[in-house]
């Protein structure tokens, strides 16, 4: 579904990504893990095009994502939903308006259709009763669930999550992970930058471990957590799990 080839990215003198190659298949739930500054978020942002890679190619459903071909590029990007660490809900819009804006202005739906779809997804994330609330009145977990619903309203084929639970209070992490797990159960392809090892292990089917902008290890979740191949992954896991 997604193929990343020889991706490089530098920020000034910092080499953020180094010759990244990655294949994502339909239905995959891939966890990008690694220490901070390893390039996980940068890779995710490059896949969506929020950051422009220096070189390398990204293919979506076999089609090259080429920013120079604006119309085609915009069409391809619409197939991806993106969820941010800090939610980024529109502060001046209600929950329902957050979910409707792009449907009306981008997908060209009627307000009635857009509202029906929005309510459908808000129902799925358990927040239909908050339809008229402003984001400032929601908890972190609720904000993130609205953000997921907002992305789903555009019917993406692939969902990208950039540390979706890192900004949440501990007791709100689960409600967001539950929504993501449910999405996975319905066959959504997902790439998740996460520090939630439980999620990576139980919900994800594959793990990509990065360090210093390189992919160090790529493995099935089960293998990665029970029998990591690289010393760096072993070291990382021994530090992450406290026992």
């Amino acid at each position: 579904m997604i193929k990343v080839e020889h991706l490089d990215k530098t920020f000034g003198s910092l080499k953020a990504l180094h010759d990244i190659n990655l294949q994502v298949n339909q239905g995959d739930i891939i966890s990008l893990i690694g220490p901070s500054g390893s390039g996980k978020s940068t890779l995710l942002r490059c896949i969506h095009g929020l950051e422009k890679a220096d070189s390398g190619n990204i293919y979506l459903n076999g089609e090259l994502m080429n920013p120079a071909d604006k119309a085609k590029y915009a069409e391809l990007r619409k197939k991806m939903g993106f969820v941010f660490q800090h939610f980024n809900l529109f502060n001046n819009k209600t929950v329902l308006e957050n979910c409707m804006l792009a449907q009306i202005t981008v997908a060209g739906k009627s307000p009635q259709d857009a509202e029906a779809t929005a309510m459908d997804y808000l129902e799925k994330v358990g927040l239909s009763d908050k339809r008229d609330a402003y984001p400032s009145k929601l908890s972190g977990g609720q904000k993130q669930r609205v953000a997921i619903a907002r992305a789903l309203c555009m019917h993406p084929e692939l969902m990208l999550f950039d540390e979706p639970t890192s900004a949440l209070d501990p007791e709100m992490i689960k409600e967001v992970l539950e929504v993501m797990k449910e999405l996975g159960r319905h066959g959504m392809t997902m790439i998740v930058v996460t520090h939630e090892m439980g999620f990576a292990r139980k919900v994800g089917n594959r793990v990509v471990f990065l360090e210093n902008g390189r992919i160090i290890e790529e493995n099935t979740s089960e293998e990665f957590f029970t029998n990591p191949q690289s010393d760096r992954a072993k070291d990382f896991l021994s530090k992450v799990f406290y026992d």
């Binding site: 929020l50 990007r77 941010f84 800090h86 529109f90 792009a102």
Partner: peptide
């Protein structure tokens, strides 16, 4: 907040709509 711009970008919302609906009101 830059996040408001990026949210528009990921949803495919164009520059004019983004300015009118999200950025300028805030």
């Amino acid at each position: 907040d830059r996040g408001q711009w990026e949210a528009c970008e990921t949803l495919g919302i164009g520059y004019a709509t983004m300015m009118k609906e999200i950025i300028l009101p805030q």
